[in-house]
Amino acid sequence: MTDRREIPDTPLFDRDVNRQGYALNKFAMSLGRPDNRAAYKADEDAYLARFGLGPATTAAVKARDYAEMVRLGGNLFFILKISAVDPTPITAIGAAQVGMDHDRFLKERLGK
Rank of each mutant, 00 (worst) to 15 (best):
N18Q: 13
L72H: 02
D14E: 14
L53G: 08
T91Y: 14
A23Q: 15
R71V: 08
R37M: 10
A28N: 03
M100N: 06
V98Y: 02
D14R: 02
I7H: 05
V85Q: 13
D103I: 12
R4G: 09
E44L: 12
D101E: 14
E6R: 15
T91E: 12
M100L: 14
A28M: 06
D86C: 03
G52N: 10
R4M: 15
D103E: 13
L31A: 06
V98G: 00
V85P: 06
D86F: 12
G111S: 11
L53Q: 03
G32C: 08
P55R: 06
L72V: 01
T88W: 10
G94E: 07
P55K: 11
D43G: 05
K81V: 00
I90Q: 10
G74Y: 00
A39W: 05
F78E: 11
K107H: 13
N75G: 04
D45C: 09
A96Y: 03
R37F: 05
D16H: 09
Q97T: 01
D103W: 09
R71I: 07
Q20I: 00
A67M: 06
D14V: 00
A60F: 06
T88S: 05
V85I: 14
M1K: 04
N25I: 00
K26C: 03
H102N: 13
M100D: 01
T88I: 13
F105Q: 05
T57F: 03
I79Q: 06
N75F: 08
T58P: 06
D3I: 06
K107T: 15
A42D: 11
F27L: 13
R4H: 15
E44V: 09
G94K: 06
A67V: 02
G111K: 14
A56W: 02
D45H: 12
Q20F: 07
F77K: 11
R104W: 04
